[in-house]
Simulated scan of single mutants.
Amino acid sequence: MTLAADRVTRTAGGRLILDGVSLGPEPGGVTGLLGPNGSGKSTLLRLLAGVLAPASGVVTLDGLPLPALRRRDVARRVAVVEQQSDTLVELTVADVVRLGRIPHRRAWTPPVPADEEAVRTALERTGLTDRAHQSWHTLSGGERQRVQIARALAQEPRELLLDEPTNHLDIQHQLDLLDLVAALPVTSVVALHDLNLAAMYCDRVAVLAHGRVVAAGTPAEVLTEALVADVYGVRAEITVPADGDRPHVRVLGTLTRGR
Protein backbone atom coordinates (compact mmCIF):
# COMPACT_ATOMS: atom_id res chain seq x y z
CA MET A 1 0.00 0.00 0.00
CA THR A 2 1.23 3.50 -0.78
CA LEU A 3 -1.27 5.66 1.16
CA ALA A 4 -3.31 4.13 3.97
CA ALA A 5 -5.36 5.01 7.04
CA ASP A 6 -5.24 2.71 10.06
CA ARG A 7 -8.05 3.04 12.61
CA VAL A 8 -8.19 6.82 12.37
CA THR A 9 -10.52 8.84 14.56
CA ARG A 10 -11.41 12.52 14.24
CA THR A 11 -13.64 14.78 16.30
CA ALA A 12 -14.88 18.31 15.68
CA GLY A 13 -16.79 20.50 18.10
CA GLY A 14 -17.09 17.60 20.49
CA ARG A 15 -18.72 15.42 17.81
CA LEU A 16 -17.18 12.19 16.54
CA ILE A 17 -16.69 12.55 12.77
CA LEU A 18 -14.64 9.41 12.08
CA ASP A 19 -14.58 6.42 14.38
CA GLY A 20 -11.74 3.94 13.87
CA VAL A 21 -11.71 4.04 10.07
CA SER A 22 -9.18 1.99 8.11
CA LEU A 23 -8.65 2.34 4.38
CA GLY A 24 -5.99 0.81 2.16
CA PRO A 25 -6.40 1.87 -1.48
CA GLU A 26 -4.90 -0.53 -3.99
CA PRO A 27 -1.85 0.99 -5.73
CA GLY A 28 -2.77 2.18 -9.20
CA GLY A 29 -6.50 1.63 -8.67
CA VAL A 30 -9.52 3.83 -8.11
CA THR A 31 -11.14 3.57 -4.68
CA GLY A 32 -14.53 5.20 -4.20
CA LEU A 33 -15.72 6.68 -0.92
CA LEU A 34 -19.49 6.45 -0.68
CA GLY A 35 -22.00 7.48 1.96
CA PRO A 36 -24.61 10.12 2.73
CA ASN A 37 -23.79 13.70 3.65
CA GLY A 38 -22.08 13.90 7.02
CA SER A 39 -20.75 10.35 6.91
CA GLY A 40 -17.11 11.50 7.06
CA LYS A 41 -15.94 11.21 3.43
CA SER A 42 -14.42 14.70 3.16
CA THR A 43 -12.79 14.43 6.58
CA LEU A 44 -11.20 11.12 5.65
CA LEU A 45 -9.78 12.62 2.45
CA ARG A 46 -8.28 15.50 4.44
CA LEU A 47 -6.67 13.05 6.84
CA LEU A 48 -5.19 11.11 3.92
CA ALA A 49 -3.83 14.38 2.52
CA GLY A 50 -2.27 15.36 5.84
CA VAL A 51 -4.35 18.54 5.98
CA LEU A 52 -5.96 17.29 9.20
CA ALA A 53 -4.42 15.11 11.90
CA PRO A 54 -6.30 12.18 13.41
CA ALA A 55 -7.13 12.22 17.11
CA SER A 56 -6.03 8.58 17.14
CA GLY A 57 -4.78 6.11 14.59
CA VAL A 58 -2.30 6.88 11.83
CA VAL A 59 -2.10 7.74 8.14
CA THR A 60 0.96 6.36 6.39
CA LEU A 61 2.67 6.93 3.05
CA ASP A 62 4.86 4.03 1.94
CA GLY A 63 4.59 2.71 5.49
CA LEU A 64 5.81 5.94 7.15
CA PRO A 65 3.50 8.11 9.28
CA LEU A 66 2.69 11.39 7.54
CA PRO A 67 3.99 13.51 10.46
CA ALA A 68 7.40 11.89 10.00
CA LEU A 69 7.61 13.17 6.41
CA ARG A 70 8.41 16.66 5.20
CA ARG A 71 5.32 18.54 4.07
CA ARG A 72 6.94 19.31 0.71
CA ASP A 73 7.64 15.62 0.11
CA VAL A 74 4.01 14.76 0.81
CA ALA A 75 2.86 17.59 -1.48
CA ARG A 76 4.96 16.22 -4.32
CA ARG A 77 3.29 12.85 -3.97
CA VAL A 78 -0.31 13.57 -3.01
CA ALA A 79 -2.59 15.92 -4.96
CA VAL A 80 -5.99 17.02 -3.65
CA VAL A 81 -9.03 18.32 -5.52
CA GLU A 82 -11.51 19.93 -3.13
CA GLN A 83 -15.24 20.41 -3.70
CA GLN A 84 -15.00 24.20 -3.88
CA SER A 85 -12.08 26.44 -4.81
CA ASP A 86 -11.88 30.19 -5.19
CA THR A 87 -9.39 33.03 -5.28
CA LEU A 88 -9.57 36.79 -4.91
CA VAL A 89 -6.47 37.20 -7.06
CA GLU A 90 -6.92 37.80 -10.79
CA LEU A 91 -5.47 34.64 -12.32
CA THR A 92 -5.69 33.00 -15.72
CA VAL A 93 -6.48 29.32 -16.14
CA ALA A 94 -2.81 28.62 -16.87
CA ASP A 95 -1.78 30.53 -13.71
CA VAL A 96 -4.02 28.30 -11.59
CA VAL A 97 -2.66 25.14 -13.20
CA ARG A 98 0.91 26.36 -12.59
CA LEU A 99 0.18 26.31 -8.86
CA GLY A 100 0.47 22.53 -9.13
CA ARG A 101 4.18 22.91 -9.78
CA ILE A 102 4.94 24.75 -6.52
CA PRO A 103 5.96 21.60 -4.56
CA HIS A 104 8.56 20.83 -7.26
CA ARG A 105 10.26 24.24 -7.15
CA ARG A 106 12.33 26.08 -4.60
CA ALA A 107 10.98 29.36 -3.30
CA TRP A 108 11.35 32.34 -5.65
CA THR A 109 12.85 30.27 -8.45
CA PRO A 110 11.40 30.69 -11.96
CA PRO A 111 9.72 27.76 -13.72
CA VAL A 112 11.89 25.46 -15.78
CA PRO A 113 10.88 23.83 -19.10
CA ALA A 114 9.71 20.70 -17.26
CA ASP A 115 7.24 22.82 -15.28
CA GLU A 116 5.73 24.39 -18.39
CA GLU A 117 5.54 21.00 -20.12
CA ALA A 118 3.63 19.57 -17.15
CA VAL A 119 1.22 22.52 -17.32
CA ARG A 120 0.69 22.11 -21.07
CA THR A 121 0.07 18.39 -20.69
CA ALA A 122 -2.42 18.94 -17.87
CA LEU A 123 -4.34 21.52 -19.91
CA GLU A 124 -4.47 19.17 -22.88
CA ARG A 125 -5.69 16.19 -20.84
CA THR A 126 -8.52 18.21 -19.35
CA GLY A 127 -9.53 19.89 -22.62
CA LEU A 128 -8.57 23.36 -21.43
CA THR A 129 -5.81 24.35 -23.84
CA ASP A 130 -8.03 26.92 -25.53
CA ARG A 131 -8.89 28.43 -22.12
CA ALA A 132 -5.30 28.83 -20.91
CA HIS A 133 -5.32 32.64 -21.04
CA GLN A 134 -8.92 33.10 -19.89
CA SER A 135 -9.59 34.64 -16.48
CA TRP A 136 -10.48 32.16 -13.75
CA HIS A 137 -13.32 34.42 -12.58
CA THR A 138 -15.12 34.17 -15.93
CA LEU A 139 -15.46 30.38 -15.75
CA SER A 140 -18.53 28.40 -14.79
CA GLY A 141 -18.47 26.15 -11.74
CA GLY A 142 -17.92 23.08 -13.89
CA GLU A 143 -15.08 24.72 -15.80
CA ARG A 144 -13.41 25.73 -12.55
CA GLN A 145 -13.59 22.12 -11.39
CA ARG A 146 -11.83 20.99 -14.56
CA VAL A 147 -9.11 23.60 -13.91
CA GLN A 148 -8.59 22.17 -10.44
CA ILE A 149 -8.20 18.72 -11.92
CA ALA A 150 -5.62 20.14 -14.34
CA ARG A 151 -3.76 21.76 -11.44
CA ALA A 152 -3.63 18.42 -9.65
CA LEU A 153 -2.36 16.67 -12.81
CA ALA A 154 0.35 19.32 -13.26
CA GLN A 155 1.55 18.31 -9.81
CA GLU A 156 2.36 14.88 -11.31
CA PRO A 157 1.22 13.02 -8.20
CA ARG A 158 1.37 9.33 -7.43
CA GLU A 159 -1.72 9.60 -5.22
CA LEU A 160 -4.77 11.65 -6.19
CA LEU A 161 -7.57 12.52 -3.75
CA LEU A 162 -10.80 13.95 -5.15
CA ASP A 163 -13.76 15.23 -3.12
CA GLU A 164 -16.97 15.09 -5.18
CA PRO A 165 -15.17 16.00 -8.43
CA THR A 166 -18.30 15.55 -10.55
CA ASN A 167 -20.23 18.30 -8.76
CA HIS A 168 -21.28 21.11 -11.15
CA LEU A 169 -20.46 18.99 -14.20
CA ASP A 170 -22.94 17.91 -16.86
CA ILE A 171 -23.21 14.22 -17.69
CA GLN A 172 -20.71 14.27 -20.54
CA HIS A 173 -18.06 16.02 -18.47
CA GLN A 174 -18.70 13.73 -15.50
CA LEU A 175 -17.91 10.76 -17.71
CA ASP A 176 -14.96 12.51 -19.36
CA LEU A 177 -13.47 13.40 -15.99
CA LEU A 178 -13.84 9.93 -14.51
CA ASP A 179 -12.52 8.37 -17.73
CA LEU A 180 -9.45 10.53 -17.23
CA VAL A 181 -9.05 9.63 -13.55
CA ALA A 182 -9.47 5.90 -14.23
CA ALA A 183 -6.80 6.00 -16.95
CA LEU A 184 -4.18 7.75 -14.80
CA PRO A 185 -1.27 5.61 -13.56
CA VAL A 186 -1.84 6.80 -9.99
CA THR A 187 -3.59 5.63 -6.84
CA SER A 188 -6.89 7.52 -6.72
CA VAL A 189 -9.40 7.93 -3.90
CA VAL A 190 -12.59 9.70 -4.95
CA ALA A 191 -15.62 10.66 -2.89
CA LEU A 192 -18.82 10.26 -4.89
CA HIS A 193 -22.56 10.55 -4.35
CA ASP A 194 -23.62 8.85 -7.57
CA LEU A 195 -23.64 5.10 -6.94
CA ASN A 196 -23.74 4.25 -10.63
CA LEU A 197 -20.67 6.37 -11.39
CA ALA A 198 -18.92 4.60 -8.52
CA ALA A 199 -19.93 1.22 -9.93
CA MET A 200 -18.73 2.18 -13.42
CA TYR A 201 -15.32 3.60 -12.51
CA CYS A 202 -14.16 2.35 -9.12
CA ASP A 203 -12.15 -0.84 -8.68
CA ARG A 204 -13.15 -0.92 -5.01
CA VAL A 205 -15.51 1.10 -2.85
CA ALA A 206 -15.80 1.83 0.87
CA VAL A 207 -19.16 2.91 2.27
CA LEU A 208 -19.19 5.21 5.29
CA ALA A 209 -22.11 5.80 7.64
CA HIS A 210 -21.96 7.74 10.91
CA GLY A 211 -18.18 7.93 10.70
CA ARG A 212 -17.56 4.21 10.23
CA VAL A 213 -16.84 1.95 7.28
CA VAL A 214 -19.88 -0.31 7.03
CA ALA A 215 -18.85 -2.15 3.85
CA ALA A 216 -15.81 -2.37 1.58
CA GLY A 217 -14.96 -4.39 -1.50
CA THR A 218 -15.70 -4.40 -5.21
CA PRO A 219 -18.83 -2.54 -6.37
CA ALA A 220 -20.55 -5.86 -7.10
CA GLU A 221 -19.81 -7.09 -3.57
CA VAL A 222 -20.80 -3.90 -1.77
CA LEU A 223 -23.70 -2.33 -3.68
CA THR A 224 -26.62 -4.45 -2.58
CA GLU A 225 -30.27 -3.51 -2.16
CA ALA A 226 -30.01 -4.14 1.58
CA LEU A 227 -26.98 -1.86 1.95
CA VAL A 228 -28.56 0.97 -0.05
CA ALA A 229 -31.66 0.71 2.12
CA ASP A 230 -29.69 0.67 5.38
CA VAL A 231 -27.25 3.46 4.52
CA TYR A 232 -29.28 5.77 2.29
CA GLY A 233 -32.83 5.03 3.44
CA VAL A 234 -34.11 4.34 -0.07
CA ARG A 235 -35.44 1.34 -1.95
CA ALA A 236 -33.34 0.33 -4.93
CA GLU A 237 -33.33 -2.31 -7.62
CA ILE A 238 -29.82 -3.49 -8.44
CA THR A 239 -29.07 -5.42 -11.59
CA VAL A 240 -25.77 -7.11 -12.31
CA PRO A 241 -24.64 -7.95 -15.85
CA ALA A 242 -23.69 -11.48 -16.83
CA ASP A 243 -20.02 -10.85 -16.12
CA GLY A 244 -20.94 -9.88 -12.53
CA ASP A 245 -18.66 -6.88 -12.63
CA ARG A 246 -20.44 -3.51 -12.67
CA PRO A 247 -23.87 -3.35 -11.01
CA HIS A 248 -26.51 -0.78 -11.95
CA VAL A 249 -28.55 0.92 -9.25
CA ARG A 250 -32.12 2.05 -9.93
CA VAL A 251 -33.61 4.06 -7.07
CA LEU A 252 -37.32 3.35 -6.59
CA GLY A 253 -38.13 5.76 -3.77
CA THR A 254 -37.71 6.33 -0.05
CA LEU A 255 -38.43 3.55 2.38
CA THR A 256 -41.38 5.48 3.77
CA ARG A 257 -43.08 5.86 0.39
CA GLY A 258 -45.04 3.11 -1.28
CA ARG A 259 -44.38 1.84 -4.77
Rank of each mutant, 00 (worst) to 15 (best):
I149G: 01
A150C: 01
R151T: 07
R151G: 01
R151Y: 02
L153P: 10
A154F: 04
E156D: 08
E156H: 07
R158I: 02
E159P: 02
L161N: 12
L162E: 08
E164R: 13
E164W: 00
T166Y: 00
T166A: 14
L169N: 03
L169Q: 11
L169D: 11
D170G: 04
D170P: 00
Q172W: 03
H173D: 02
H173R: 06
D176P: 04
D179M: 02
V181F: 09
V181E: 03
V181K: 14
V181A: 05
A182H: 15
A182T: 04
A182V: 01
A182C: 04
A183M: 04
L184G: 08
P185K: 14
V186H: 10
V186T: 14
T187S: 13
V190G: 05
V190Y: 10
V190I: 15
A191T: 01
L192T: 01
L192I: 03
N196R: 14
L197D: 06
A198E: 06
M200E: 14
C202T: 04
C202M: 10
R204V: 00
V205K: 15
V207P: 10
H210T: 08
G211L: 11
V213T: 14
V213H: 10
A215K: 13
A216S: 07
A216Y: 08
G217M: 00
G217N: 12
G217A: 11
T218E: 09
T218G: 03
E221Q: 15
V222S: 07
V222N: 11
V222G: 12
A226I: 01
A229G: 10
D230Q: 15
D230S: 12
V231C: 08
V231W: 13
Y232K: 13
V234I: 14
V234M: 09
R235E: 10
A236Q: 07
E237A: 09
E237D: 07
I238Y: 13
